[in-house]
Design a protein around this nucleic acid. Structure first.
Length: 794
RNA sequence: GCUCGGGUGGCGAAAUGGUAGACGCGCUGGUCUUAGGAACCAGUUCCGAAAGGAUUGAGAGUUCGAGUCUCUCCUCGAGCACCA
């Protein structure tokens, strides 16, 4: 009888004592493998099924790579600054410095109970001065390069969290964390100039990432190539209005211009007579929240400004409108071409702008002069019509020609636009890394000299968010001498977005104890890039984008040799309970503890992996865990029995091959089922020693404790994880006798067993006998695919 | 609305264009047992007594052969959402 609990405690202790999960970081002899999972934040809640669903496959993968002969580095730290830790502290009334400490210890114990080979002894915690010192250093490097700057801008304000948020943290107009409705505020805040890296971030060359994640990032960066053009104002020929379009080819159909209410120069384009109306409209749209704008959907509103722009192609005067469907990005004003843009069409309908004219016609042979209903078929590429000298050209070619001619004429140029905004990193919250900047009356904005780092995060009693940073209440912190002139200075009191802390932790792991630098380039370049990065898909446009940006900056500054941080990325799926995401508020959190206690960690983690492909997640149900428990039991019994194993030799090698293939594809579920099949076949008779050794090694990534126990029972003193992955002998993988299916007119009508080297004629002859009664009439076609199928068409 | 994924037994799920439903749960029957929610053996897609027939969300297409490829549609999930 295998006693999981006892055995697991024993092996966890042995692994820790022998340091088997430690990698030789400075001088890896074997090829390195850097296996990382997104580090957790200590929140005070226990580990739930979702954590296990993440960490178990990561660990199985790491153990597999270890058995394959790699020096595997599989560290884990804690993302301990940030809102989860702070909110937990607010809830319990205990200072975050204390709760964080306690929670990390608690979580470490729980993570150790999984029996993973995570290296938790590096003590990487983003809230410790040894770590955030270097987060501040990182800030200074960006500052020096002009990539960190402060400006006043309308920003997203979350009234629930009482802080500003980055664009990435606003979802459907609500705070990503607390779901409060986000409002716009104009504030002076710190930004990272991620937009400088828009183009570089679009390069995914050499990355093995899920297509979907790449698509999401690309969409978020939102590159569009278009044209910026100046239109003259007909009321005042000295004035121009600059518009942006991606469809310059449709300009002959343009019959209005629309400008965003927030446009700084809006009133340059408003006539005196319309001034009052426009002011009213601007006021009204300012009051609308992001959410209200979305609620209105495609219902367009706007008012005339009273001025007109001149269409440079045909000289027509077009009315200018102020309309809030135009966003204050890029030029903040657009040309309206109702026939070729649905929004323009909707707006034109509301404003009763008449007779939108088709410019690009499908196929060129049929088009309507006037568009009564907008249809996206009109949007297709095609042949130019109604377009003066360009009529008859292919529209994409016309676009190029028109744009070059315009550039020569000097009233516009081709440009590339991105929707990515700069990363707002200021937070008016307590539990984060202080921004290392001092404001001096004389010298202005002064960066804290690197030798003065860290800017120590002050202890504050009342850290409940009030809308301004709690750090501002600590006078000894705020008042400081200017590092430049020695005069009176005041510290920046905002803290950094926790995503800054998490954007570089994987660079710290290999050299976590370094007190002289953020990391030693030599060591880090040995380990970077991360070979396998596993974590949730929800970070696609946040952490995963920020980390790439920071890494590229560090690469450009010469601090790292690699251009990308994560070579291969895999997202685990989400485990739901009754179809809903597990959350404490819903009260549907499943705790692994009782199952681990009853069945052991091996059974629990295998059960999670057996649910299905781990990238897909699934709905939690404890029905069925007994199946894995039975398997473990049978497996153990199988290993206890001794036989010569002759009859299982083929099966053993096939199982090794199948498990290898499955794990290689990270299909842990089918790896387990292959082992089940073998166990079911052999558990009553047993295997020979060599066979047991092979099988226990291929089981080891999935059930490490059980595998160690078996290995030891086979008389080995050393850990199974010092061994190497077995190779299936190809001679056992080819069956001598193959059962062929026989199809007649595509329907299966029988089977026949044939030798592996059977000739076509012989096979067909044998098959004909089996399905004789279906072979009526004349045979039209006979099919023989070696190793696969025999077919007749009659 | 746009961009991705999915849709296969009562359930979780397998299937390089080649015998659909491996493996597991559950269920049915049996063996062993004072008893068993333990263990083992057998069965289990649906309809049908059987012969046989049907079957991978719906429909069409390509193919000797389609869960798998192509098109149209339905539906569920995720993400983005007036970026011109």
């Amino acid at each position: 009888m295998y006693e999981a609990t006892k055995s697991e405690a024993k092996w966890q202790k042995k692994w820790r004592e022998s340091g088997i999960y430690k990698a030789d970081l400075k001088n890896p002899v074997k090829p390195k493998y850097y296996n990382v999972t997104m580090f957790p934040y200590p929140s005070g809640d226990k580990l739930h099924v979702g954590h296990w669903y993440n960490y178990a496959p990561v660990d199985s993968w790491g153990r597999y790579m270890k058995l394959k002969g790699f020096e595997v580095f599989q560290p884990m730290g804690f993302d301990s600054f940030g809102l989860p830790a702070e909110n937990y502290a607010i809830k319990t009334g205990v200072h975050p410095a204390e709760t964080t400490r306690a929670n990390i210890e608690k979580m470490k114990e729980q993570i150790r109970a999984i029996g993973g080979m995570f290296d938790l002894d590096l003590n990487l915690e983003t809230s410790s001065p040894e770590y955030y010192k270097w987060t501040q250093w990182l800030f200074l490097q960006l500052y020096k390069k002009g990539l960190a700057y402060r400006r006043e801008a309308p920003v997203n304000w979350c009234p629930g969290c009482m802080t500003v948020l980055a664009n990435e943290q606003v979802q459907e107009g609500k705070c990503e964390r607390c779901k409060s409705e986000v409002v716009q505020k104009k504030l002076r805040q710190w930004f990272f100039k991620i937009t400088d890296y828009s183009e570089k971030l679009l390069d995914y060359d050499g990355l093995d990432w899920p297509e979907k994640t790449i698509a999401m990032q690309k969409h978020w960066i939102g590159k569009s190539e278009g044209v910026e053009a100046d239109f003259r104002i007909s009321e005042d020929q000295s004035k121009k209005i600059r518009i942006f379009t991606t469809r310059f080819d449709t300009i002959y159909g343009t019959n209005f211009v629309a400008i965003a209410p927030e446009h700084p120069k809006l009133f340059d384009y408003v006539s005196d007579s319309e001034r009052a109306v426009v002011e009213k409209y601007v006021e009204a749209s300012k009051k609308k929240s992001e959410l209200e704008r979305q609620m209105e959907g495609k219902q367009k509103t706007g008012v005339k400004t009273g001025m007109h722009a001149i269409n440079p192609m045909n000289g027509e005067a077009m009315p200018i409108y102020v309309a809030d469907f135009v966003l204050m990005y890029g030029t903040g004003s657009v040309m309206g071409t109702p026939a070729h843009d649905e929004r323009d069409f909707q707006f034109a309908k509301v404003m009763k702008i008449l007779a939108p004219q088709v410019i690009v016609a499908k196929d060129g042979d049929k088009y309507e002069d006037d568009v009564a209903e907008w249809s996206d078929t009109l949007h297709d590429d095609g042949i130019m019509v109604n377009s003066g000298p360009y009529t008859g050209m292919k529209n994409r070619e016309a676009l190029e020609k028109m744009a070059s001619e315009m550039e020569i004429a000097g009233w516009g140029k081709k440009i590339v636009n991105y929707r990515l905004r700069d990363w707002l990193i200021s937070r008016q919250r307590y539990w984060g890394a202080p921004i290392p900047i001092i404001y001096c009356e004389k010298c202005g904005e002064v960066p804290v000299p690197e030798k003065d780092l860290p800017v120590v995060h002050p202890h504050v009693k009342d850290y409940v968010p009030k809308g301004t940073s709690p750090l501002a209440t600590v006078e000894e912190f705020v008042n400081v001498a200017c590092p430049k002139c020695g005069g009176a200075g005041k510290r920046e009191v905002d803290t950094m977005d926790t995503f800054v802390c998490s954007s570089w932790y994987f660079l710290r792991y290999p050299d976590a104890g370094n007190s002289a630098a953020a990391w030693d380039k030599k060591i880090v370049d040995k380990w970077m890039p991360v070979d396998m990065y596993i974590g949730g898909a929800e970070h696609a446009c946040m952490h995963l984008l920020y980390a790439r940006f920071i890494h590229k900056v560090m690469n450009d500054l010469g601090f790292v040799g690699s251009a990308e941080p994560f070579k291969r990325l895999v997202h685990q799926g989400t485990v739901t309970k009754d179809g809903a995401k597990m959350s404490k508020s819903k009260g549907n959190v499943v705790s692994p503890d009782e199952f681990v206690e009853k069945y052991g960690s091996d059974v629990f983690r295998m059960y999670l992996m057996f649910m299905g492909p781990f990238t897909e997640g699934g709905d939690w149900s404890d029905r069925g865990i007994t199946g894995i428990a039975r398997f473990v039991d049978r497996f153990w019994r199988c290993m206890e029995l001794e036989s010569d194993g002759a009859e299982f030799e083929v099966k053993v090698h096939q199982t090794v091959a199948r498990v290898t293939e499955s794990i290689e594809k990270m299909n842990f579920n089918t790896a387990i089922s292959a082992l089940m099949e073998l166990t079911n076949a052999a558990f009553a008779k047993g295997l020979n020693k060599r066979q047991k050794e092979m099988i226990s090694i291929v089981l080891a990534p999935l059930a490490p404790h059980l595998a160690e126990e078996v290995w030891e029972s086979l008389g080995h003193g050393e850990s199974i994880f010092t061994k190497s992955w077995p190779k299936a002998d190809p001679k056992f993988l080819v069956k001598d006798v193959i059962t062929y299916g026989i199809q007649v007119n595509g329907k299966l009508r029988g089977t026949v067993d044939l030798g592996k080297d059977v000739e076509k004629e012989e096979a067909l002859a044998a098959a004909r006998v089996v399905v004789a009664k279906y072979l009526t009439g004349e045979a039209k076609k006979e099919i023989f695919v070696a190793g696969k199928i025999i077919g007749f068409v009659v």
